[in-house]
């Protein structure tokens, strides 16, 4: 049988999926063991015990200075910023994407502008944000918004423009006004795409968040990583990176579940 036609069974699929993770873990453990054998005080690749200690210290024991469980307080601070940024971005993108998608006048006025804005590298704006908005929460959230909104607007507008003309005409023959077409024909059909778009923007959003936290903050996952970097505390950095990854993966999965639950038809249409 050709290779393109041989599919893994359920068990094989799970094994195959786990394999790269296990291999990575193994490679790490071997590397760590070798380095520790050379020099028991090596900080670069801490062993599992040291990692466990660090996780315990960060997540389960209150910090002596602040009395807080650092991993959790950092997580709350970071997720708050992330979701605030993504929430604002989503609201703006939905509104502008819809308007650009259905109203030729707005498209003519805004589409080139959004296209240009989306090419500005957001990190280059970070100093400006810090100068203008100060070092507080606002500038970090704004960075996320600036970083992900233009692309989301373009994506949603494209999706709205892509809807077959026949569908819009059909709605017109059903007496729909522009407002009604937006509300009952276009909006429901771009909402599933909005969720997918949001999933794709999770990566960039985390990037901007951590960049902002690294430069100026007093809490947050990115802040902690860059703080302990000074002491070469890889035993804290590794668990933090894995934790951030887990959070992102979980958000991604939840958003997809949400799309299927709320818009069952969008999954049916997929195969078409």
């Amino acid at each position: 049988m050709r290779w393109i036609n041989s599919h893994p069974g359920a068990g094989a699929r799970l094994t195959l999926a786990l394999m790269p993770f296990v291999l990575l873990l193994l490679a790490y453990m071997i590397g760590s063991a070798e380095r520790l054998a050379d020099n028991p005080n090596d900080k670069l690749l801490p062993g599992l015990v040291a990692l466990g200690d660090a996780i315990n210290r960060m997540a389960l024991v209150p910090d002596v200075r602040s009395g807080q469980y650092l991993l959790w307080s950092d997580t709350v601070a970071s997720l708050g910023r992330l979701f605030a940024g993504l929430g604002i971005a989503t609201a703006i993108a939905l509104l502008l994407g819809l308007l650009i998608g259905i109203l030729p006048m707005v498209r003519a006025a805004l589409s080139p502008f959004v296209g240009a804005i989306s090419m500005v590298p957001p990190l280059a704006l970070l100093p400006i944000l810090f100068i203008v908005m100060g070092l507080g929460e606002a500038s970090k959230i704004t960075l996320i918004v600036i970083g992900v909104t233009p692309i989301m607007i373009r994506d949603l507008a494209l999706k709205a423009i892509e809807l077959p003309r026949e569908m819009i005409v059909k709605a017109e023959t059903l007496s729909a006004s522009s407002w009604q077409i937006a509300l009952r024909v276009v909006l429901p059909q771009i909402l599933p795409r909005l969720i997918t778009c949001l999933r794709l923007q999770l990566g960039p959003a985390w990037l901007f968040l951590i960049a902002a936290e690294a430069i100026s903050s007093d809490s947050g996952l990115g802040y902690r990583i860059f703080l302990v970097r000074r002491y070469l505390s890889m035993d804290v950095i590794f668990p933090y990176v894995i934790w951030i990854t887990l959070l992102a993966v979980a958000t991604d999965l939840l958003l997809d579940r949400l799309r299927i639950a709320v818009f069952p038809w969008s999954d049916l249409e997929k195969g078409k």
Partner: peptide, 8 residues
């Protein structure tokens, strides 16, 4: 084609 609304 495309005469009906897929989301309804």
């Amino acid at each position: 084609r495309y005469s009906v609304f897929p989301h309804l």
